[in-house]
Design a protein around this nucleic acid. Structure first.
Length: 394
RNA sequence: GGGCGGAUACCCAAGUGGUUAACGGGGGCAGACUGUAAAUCUGCUGGCGAUGCCUUCGGAGGUUCGAAUCCUUCUCCGCCCA
């Protein structure tokens, strides 16, 4: 069973493997469900882990059902307790969904993907449908979920509607007659609820496959927009490259494993060479960065990003493209310059940056926050290690 | 319905009349070290042309020379018992 081996690679759990085997023996393409809330439009590397697994399914001839949770997005996310995420309007959701799709198809095969919006069937549910659904599961079982039980024990609030989420998600599986559902490990509980509900509604329970969650650039928390530790696949090559280079060596291996599609043998080789010292970690990281930029941009973009990186940070040259800021005056107070060029949010912050030695003008460090600068055409203002601005006159 | 507790800066969280622009931690930013690594160390982390001034502790009002701290009132939230 070669297919099984491909599917198994890089997963955390398959519930259950026997069921999966049986599924694969069927002579029809399997219906593989994956759900995403279009609350944020941008796809980051964390999402790509699961997307690549979906792609593998497509390559094996199966069908992906990509559920856009527009219904759930409009109601609000259960996990953000303190500030209930503000519900998105229909328009916003659609807009997000569209950009989402554009990005998703950088990885998925459009022809083998069916995109569905769950509001199509969820909007039609009547109260009695919902009551009926709710009767299929118990409070005790709900409290088995990690974060619920933790919150309950800590006497933190849990809203009733939060209990409804796993049920709704499970209901999606019923409507879609999912054979398999794939999600991050954080989705395990919800996906398992789907199994129970499918059985209640006379269906064969879906096989649940969990995928590891990718740590963000901080190396600790999962990659997420809310933690601002993400690398978006639509970011400029230079940004992606720079962000990859700043992750820790340990995390780098994780990215090699989960973000790229290298074979286990290749991964093992990299690990070996790193250990023996034949491969410098920085080189390995550079290769990784090139590879990832190539995946979402182009070979050329990757090469350029790598070259520029070396130039700017190793040879201390200037970046190729530097944003320009117009300054009409010849003489200007440093603090003013920093604030009008948006390099500092406030003049207090500008003063701080200056005092900390973060500001240089044409390579000369400015330490006096009272300094009046004489501006020449094309003067380069640098703040911190990586923020550059070219000053131009009228 | 009854009882108790809470709302402080980006987040968590101390402070219960006076060196308090507000302890501490996280996060973030900057500097040093480096491989723009990571880890570590140090500093900063309300605003203002600024050795001073202004504004902040859920909202509004009040007491006081002086309030995040006391009083009144409003709003919101949580837990427990029924």
């Amino acid at each position: 069973m070669k297919d099984l081996e491909v599917i198994r690679r890089g997963t955390v759990e398959i519930l259950t493997k026997d069921e999966l085997k049986k599924c694969l023996r069927k002579k029809r393409p399997l219906r593989v469900k994956f759900g995403a809330d279009p609350t944020v439009p941008d796809i980051h590397l964390g999402h790509t882990v699961v997307l690549q697994k979906l792609r593998q399914f497509q390559d094996l001839g199966h069908k992906i059902i990509f559920v856009i949770g527009d219904f759930t997005a409009r109601i609000g996310d259960p996990s953000g307790r303190i500030e209930t995420r503000k519900p998105l309007s229909r328009k916003e959701v659609l807009k997000n969904a569209r950009t989402y799709q554009d990005q998703v198809f950088k990885i998925l095969d459009r022809k083998k993907t069916q995109i569905v919006f769950n509001s199509v069937w969820l909007d039609k549910l009547t109260s009695s449908d919902i009551f009926n659904l709710a009767s299929k599961y118990t409070v005790a079982r709900m409290l088995e979920r990690d974060d619920f039980s933790l919150r309950y024990r800590k006497e933190h609030p849990i809203s009733i509607h939060e209990f409804l989420y796993p049920l709704i998600q499970g209901y999606d599986s019923i409507v879609l007659k999912a054979d398999i559902e794939i999600g991050g490990t954080d989705q395990k509980f919800n996906m398992l609820v789907g199994r129970v509900l499918q059985r209640e509604y006379g269906q064969k329970p879906q096989v649940v496959i969990t995928i590891p969650l990718l740590e963000g650039t901080d190396g600790i928390r999962k990659m997420s927009k809310t933690y601002d530790n993400y690398i978006g696949i639509s970011e400029p090559p230079k940004e992606i490259f720079g962000k990859i280079m700043s992750i820790s060596d340990k995390l780098m291996l994780r990215y090699w494993e989960l973000v790229t599609n290298i074979s286990p043998a290749e991964l093992a080789r990299i690990k070996r060479n790193l250990k023996s010292g034949r491969l410098h970690p920085k080189e390995a990281k550079k290769n990784l960065a090139i590879r990832i930029v190539k995946m979402y941009h182009s070979r050329k973009a990757a090469k350029e990003a790598a070259e520029e990186f070396e130039e700017v940070f190793k040879e201390k040259k200037l970046p190729h493209r530097i944003p320009k800021v117009k300054v009409s005056k010849k003489k200007i107070w440093v603090v003013k310059l920093l604030t009008i060029s948006k390099m500092a949010k406030s003049s207090s912050e500008a003063r701080r940056l200056i005092q900390q030695g973060a500001v240089t003008l044409d390579g000369e460090r400015i330490i006096d926050p009272e300094k009046e600068l004489t501006i020449r055409e094309g003067t380069i203002l640098k703040v911190g290690k990586r923020r550059f601005i070219r000053i131009v006159g009228k």
